[in-house]
């Protein structure tokens, strides 16, 4: 049996060759041997990750590191080339009710003819199931969710009439509607105003205080240590994962952002990161 990994990266557990290990169901997200490729080009490679319960976890890495893809692979939104991701010990399709997803704000068309309340009510659709309409009770819950993110007064506003921060709050309210145990959020802090950023942080802390687990793709290195208890540093592979105090080190950041990049990748990186 192989006990030593030859990759020289001692932080990783040895690759499992034996049958799937049993995960205690309290692990919100367990990822094993996950590889994702787009058009035969790998985006994520050999991901091994166990996210502990009740933690506020930041996913940090350069553009194109596969942060969003990692979330999507856990949600069956992109095909996995190998490996699996288990949510509370079960594959995603059996654990839908325990997960809420906040996609990137730019992923939808904000000119779509719906108001804020309509969008938040979408968080109840899985509970309702096929064919059933949004009930009065669910609409009331949607109103409560909007109140929790502080924009109940904008419920009837068409979504294009909302500011970027307000749109992000609508998305968070929709996730609250899903009443999940694990929240996967893709860049919720991107291009929001300071008040919204503060509101989101408070919401995340409240969720984790209730024992919920939040996995948040984050791009602002300056706030990592104040926001997150736990971080995952990623650049196609997991560079390091663990409690922020131990993991958020200069050396690990160097490994994530620099060092291994060759000139071409650096150029591509610079192009990608130039503001549109």
């Amino acid at each position: 049996m192989h006990t030593e990994s030859l990759s020289g990266q001692a932080v990783f557990p040895a690759k499992h060759t034996e049958p799937r290990p049993e995960h205690p169901p309290e692990i919100p997200l367990a990822i094993h041997d996950l590889t994702v490729a787009y058009h035969r080009k790998p985006v994520l490679w050999d991901i091994e990750l166990n996210i502990p319960e009740g933690k506020l976890v930041g996913i940090v890495g350069p553009n194109g590191a596969g942060k969003s893809t990692l979330l999507k692979a856990c949600l069956d939104l992109v095909p996995r080339t190998s490996g699996w991701a288990h949510i509370y010990g079960a594959p995603y399709r059996k654990a839908r009710h325990r997960v809420a997803y906040v996609p990137q704000r730019e992923s939808v068309d904000w000119d779509f003819p719906v108001n804020a309340l309509d969008v938040v009510a979408m968080g109840a659709y899985r509970r309702l199931g096929w064919f059933r309409r949004v009930t009065k009770a669910e609409a009331a819950r949607a109103m409560e969710a909007l109140e929790q993110v502080g924009i109940a007064h904008l419920a009837q506003r068409q979504i294009s009439q909302l500011s970027g921060g307000q749109q992000q709050r609508v998305f968070l309210a929709r996730a609250l509607m899903q009443d999940a145990d694990l929240y996967l959020m893709d860049e919720p802090f991107a291009a929001v105003d300071a008040a919204t950023e503060q509101a989101i942080v408070e919401l995340l802390r409240r969720l984790s205080g209730e024992g919920k687990t939040c996995l948040v793709v984050h791009h602002d290195l300056a706030t990592v240590t104040t926001y997150f208890d736990w971080i995952v540093l990623i650049n196609m592979r997991i560079v390091a994962a663990g409690p922020t105090a131990e993991t958020f080190t200069r050396e690990n950041l160097q490994k994530t952002y620099g060092g291994k990049l060759n000139l071409l990748e650096k150029a591509a990186e610079a192009l990608r990161s130039t503001p549109r």
Binding site: L75, L77, V99, M122
Partner: peptide, 22 residues
């Protein structure tokens, strides 16, 4: 009439529709 909410959701946010099982 039958699939109003499903059509609305999948037109607005197909990823969310997918994760919710529609």
């Amino acid at each position: 009439a039958a699939l109003y909410k499903e059509l609305k959701l999948s037109a607005f946010d197909p990823d969310l529709a997918g994760t919710l099982g529609f």
